[in-house]
Design a protein around this nucleic acid. Structure first.
Lengths: 231, 231
DNA sequence: CGCGGCTTTGATGTTCATCAAGTAAAGTGG
DNA sequence: CCACTTTACTTGATGAACATCAAAGCCGCG
């Protein structure tokens, strides 16, 4: 759903400092002018793999997943992204088409800036380019680090890792509503749904977490962190 | 080993076009002036995890691995990099210290440019910054894609993937000398040495490859590619 | 020539995927 | 709002994939 572009403009955006700190008024104006806001509901696909990239996107609110679908229709999730993440920054400078689909996991508010305008500003303002460089570098770094760490863990470590990710980085609370299904957890860590469930149950039996449907409470943070490290 | 900086200067470097295409003479000069060449032998550590980053590195010749060592002394390899790759580009904008160690797998020639000079040029030349942006984006992309693809493969697919990587991307030949040990292949794809060896043997028995110590010949490229895709 | 690291094979056990089957929850149309 | 359908969740049983342990040959190097 497209909504008014006047709700907030970039100059007053809370995420402005993350990326747009170096822009002068004229540059702000051109970004702001090339900008549209969209709201997506849980489940809606924001961008589909293969689609042409013609905008720079950033999240103001919500939660999304980046994922791929293979030939037999199975999804594999690359990452979960939250406000302040620049969800397609990884792709816009290296590809003309999306390599991953992006879908909303919660109601998500996205700012969409026409790509040619964004790139024009990058090319004319090297401080801004430098800032983008830093952001892109951080994003890749985190993604690589996360995937690399997962590779050497077995299932308990992987599940612990995901639980800690939601508790510490997304919701900043030991109690939260899991925004993805058990199947999606499996798609994120490359394990089957059944074994994700079994691991959840095991953590529950061991008193590490409490489960009430999608509501998860971390009871023994220390032990969970230890499993994440050693598992 | 440090060698003369006059062997070749950046202006005539074969890799110049990869990154330094946008520099004017003065900028070239400052990069060239801040530059030292080093040669490393197989096994030598170029940079160790945790070391301070104070240079921009690029490879002119050779082969390196990026890796991490865990508490119990086991290595995990992130990637194998070849000439034309900018081996620390991923780190220099997001970290002040190396997140991965870099070691030579063959005799390797590295150009080392003082980081402050490199960054100065980036900040003053937005075309250059844009070019760096594109490169960094491609590098992350490839790394992420590779690690992501590995995650859903089982051992045969992973081994096939690595064999194809060396045959097609590194040596561009169906016959090549494997530059890493079986153990290192394991560290690269997160499997044990024993199972890497068993998979090699199986491929040999199936007539997919020929083995003569470190010399590997791909006999049935089509089948190997198929294993890579489906495995 | 002897030592340490690399390679190889076999035996055994653990971890995980797959298959099956049933319950619970959530969305859908009348 | 209820019947219906679909999707999510859960547990158990079984087998495949992989790690671990053990032992021995090989190869390069000081």
């Amino acid at each position: 759903m497209k909504i008014s572009k006047d709700i907030l403009n970039c100059k007053h955006c809370v995420y402005r400092s993350l990326l747009f700190g170096q822009l002068d008024d004229k540059e702000y104006e051109s970004i702001n002018h090339a900008r549209t806001e969209y709201v997506f509901k849980r489940g809606e696909v924001i961008k589909a793999e293969g689609e042409n990239i013609n905008s720079f996107l950033y999240m103001r609110k919500g939660l999304v997943k980046l994922y791929k679908t293979n030939k037999i229709g199975k999804d594999q999730i690359l990452s979960i992204n939250k406000p302040g993440d620049f969800i397609n920054l990884l792709n816009i400078f290296s590809n003309s088409n999306y390599k991953y689909s992006i879908a909303a996991l919660e109601e998500t508010l996205v700012c969409d800036v026409k790509l040619n305008v964004f790139i024009e500003v990058v090319r004319n303002n090297s401080d801004f380019a430098f800032s983008v460089l830093n952001r892109i570098s951080k994003i890749s770094d985190e993604t690589i680090e996360r995937r690399f760490a997962l590779a050497q863990k077995q299932i308990k470590g992987r599940v612990a890792n995901i639980l800690l990710f939601f508790a510490e980085e997304v919701y900043r609370d030991n109690k939260f509503r899991m925004p993805i299904t058990r199947r999606e957890v499996g798609e994120l860590v490359s394990m089957t749904t059944e074994n994700i469930i079994r691991t959840f149950s095991e953590f529950r039996k061991d008193g590490i977490i409490a489960l009430d449907g999608k509501i998860i409470t971390i009871l023994d943070l220390k032990r969970l962190k230890n499993i994440n490290k050693t598992g």
